[in-house]
Simulated scan of single mutants.
Amino acid sequence: MEIRPAQPDDVPGIDALLRASFPAADEAMLVQRLCIDGDMVLTMVAHDEAESGVVGMAAFSRMDVAVNGRAVAAVALAPVATLPGWRRQGIAEMLIAAGHDMLERAGYVLAFVLGDRGYYRRFGYDADWAKGFDSPYAGEHLMVLPLQSAGMPCGVRGHAAHARAFAALAGAGEGA
């Protein structure tokens, strides 16, 4: 199995993976909209030749974020998916870690995620750090991770806006 950035030939496999991994097509539509709108920053895939394609993926999309009045380069992690038969093998963890490494090297400062605190805490995401950000998704499930070695300073205040495509997903009743 290979963990790598997605390539154009992976698009059908990513779409099939998302449709097989979630009860509705909302996440597949989210990824399509992020790409069409030009908001997709990085999509990591787990590719297995024996399986003939994509068995896992993690998407990172552009955000509009300001910290203490200054714009910073930030991304949102979502969605993350692994084919049912490939779950609980560490694939999602490898995808997320590889994505974080690439984004850090590219100069991104923060990564946000909406999700289970227990799960995303293992990657360093923290809901307490997100409390200082004004966001339509503010609450216990909004978490942030500093990607640069300086870490997260105390008293951070700012705003964090996800790409427009997330509002459409939330409007579909599935949340973001």
Rank of each mutant, 00 (worst) to 15 (best):
I3Q: 07
R4D: 11
P5S: 09
A6P: 02
Q7I: 15
P8E: 07
D9I: 15
D10E: 12
D10I: 03
P12M: 09
G13E: 08
I14T: 11
D15M: 11
A16K: 12
A20P: 09
A25M: 11
V31F: 08
R33D: 13
C35M: 14
C35D: 15
D37Y: 09
G38N: 11
G38V: 10
V41F: 09
V45K: 03
V45E: 03
H47V: 13
E49F: 03
E49G: 04
A50M: 07
G56K: 00
A58K: 02
A59K: 03
F60M: 04
R62V: 03
R62W: 08
R62L: 06
A66F: 10
V67Q: 09
V67G: 00
G69W: 08
R70Y: 14
V72P: 05
V72S: 04
A73E: 08
A81S: 11
A81T: 00
T82D: 14
T82H: 05
L83M: 14
P84N: 14
R88W: 12
G90F: 10
A92R: 04
A92Y: 08
L95Q: 10
I96Q: 00
I96W: 07
I96D: 01
H100P: 02
H100V: 11
M102T: 12
G107S: 10
L110P: 01
F112Q: 02
R117W: 06
G118Q: 02
R121H: 09
G124M: 03
Y125A: 01
A127I: 06
D128K: 14
F133D: 06
F133P: 04
P136H: 04
A138I: 01
G139S: 00
E140F: 00
L145A: 00
L147P: 06
S149Q: 13
G151M: 12
C154G: 15
V156G: 01
R157L: 14
G158W: 05
H159E: 13
A160P: 03
A163S: 07
R164G: 12
F166Q: 00
F166T: 00
A168Q: 06
G175D: 08
A176N: 02
